[in-house]
């Protein structure tokens, strides 16, 4: 086929304009680091779901006969001082990290969204009180509040993600309040009302698309932050109660045994670092794709 024929046969009808979502995806896909991050995060989540089923051992299985062994055919990533299989420990850690990362962010977002909506919609004294609370949360490192909450609620998976969630809501509250204030009574909504749009239509077609980008970006930065908080609790010995494995626990115990058994440290530390990087790349990619500014934490 000659070039001329190709041109003649080409469909010259105007294409329908690409939707917002498609445009965002195209911008995201252009960022190679973000795509690589997304692939890693996807694998991480899948492993988090199926990990414990494919794990060769349970995290409670101890085998003193083969303690502190290097990587081998039976124990791919070696064993620790109690004979725990490192591969299984890592698979369970990924599962727990998924639950805590997503759970804590969900808790934080729900609290933040409710308070932010209240502050933005009610205004006046309610707004004032909620914003003073937000200021209070920003005034000091939430990590310390986290330490106390963990003592209160316990050191299981549920208590830990709830306590991390309780300390991380303030950013979401501020974001949602700002969005509500910027959209409520804005020209766009006014125009929609004058065109006869119903409330439902305005909410779905005007408010939601304007909010969702900001929210997704801020959630994508919130998840790795929750993971760091969780691991940070383990570093001072107040994280997920052993023998439950978590990245924080594995890194901390690995650091103690570093001299003789470096593989106990290398696998969890490197895996954790790559995962955090992947989440950050995804977050940055989303930020560019949705073209939001100031939504990051």
């Amino acid at each position: 086929m000659s070039v001329v024929e190709g041109v003649l046969q080409a469909d010259l009808r105007p294409k329908p304009p690409a939707s917002r979502r498609v445009l965002a995806w195209r911008r995201f896909a252009r960022n190679r680091l973000a795509v690589a991050g997304l692939v890693w995060v996807g694998i991480f989540i899948i492993v988090g779901i199926i990990g414990p089923w494919v794990a060769p051992y349970s995290y409670t299985t101890t085998d003193y006969g083969s303690a502190n062994m290097g990587p081998s055919a039976t124990h791919w990533f070696g064993t620790d001082s109690l004979g725990h299989d490192m591969l299984s420990e890592l698979l369970y850690s990924i599962r727990f990290a998924c639950i805590i990362g997503f759970g804590a962010t969900a808790v934080a977002f729900v609290i933040g969204a409710i308070l932010g909506l209240l502050a933005g919609m009610m205004g006046g004294i309610v707004d004032n009180i909620i914003m003073r609370l937000v200021d209070l949360m920003f005034a000091f490192p939430a990590y310390f509040l986290n330490l106390i909450l963990v003592i209160d609620l316990g050191r299981g998976i549920l208590p830990i993600f709830i306590s991390i969630g309780i300390t991380q809501w303030s950013g979401y509250a501020r974001l949602i309040r700002g969005l509500v204030l910027s959209l409520r009574g804005g020209e766009m909504v006014e125009a929609a009302i004058s065109l006869g749009a119903t409330k439902r239509y305005i909410a779905l077609h005007y408010l939601f698309p304007n909010i969702i980008g900001n929210v997704i970006v801020s959630l994508s930065f919130g998840i790795p932050y929750a993971l760091i908080q969780d691991a940070g609790l383990s570093v001072v010995g107040l994280g997920l109660r052993p023998p439950m494995p978590s990245f924080g626990n594995l890194v901390t115990t690995g650091a103690a045994d570093m001299m003789g058994y470096p593989w106990l440290l290398v696998f969890p530390a490197v895996l954790f670092a790559i995962t955090l990087l992947a989440f950050l790349f995804v977050g940055n990619g989303l930020q560019e794709a949705f073209n939001t500014k100031g939504a990051s934490k």
Binding site: V235, V251, A255, M258, L265, A273, F279, L280, N284
Partner: peptide
């Protein structure tokens, strides 16, 4: 970006491993 994404305790243990062990 990497420096900001990875918390100091992970750098700490990796530094200990490389320059300490």
């Amino acid at each position: 970006l990497g420096g900001q994404a990875i918390p100091s305790f992970v750098f700490a243990v990796l530094l200990m491993l490389v320059f300490g062990v």
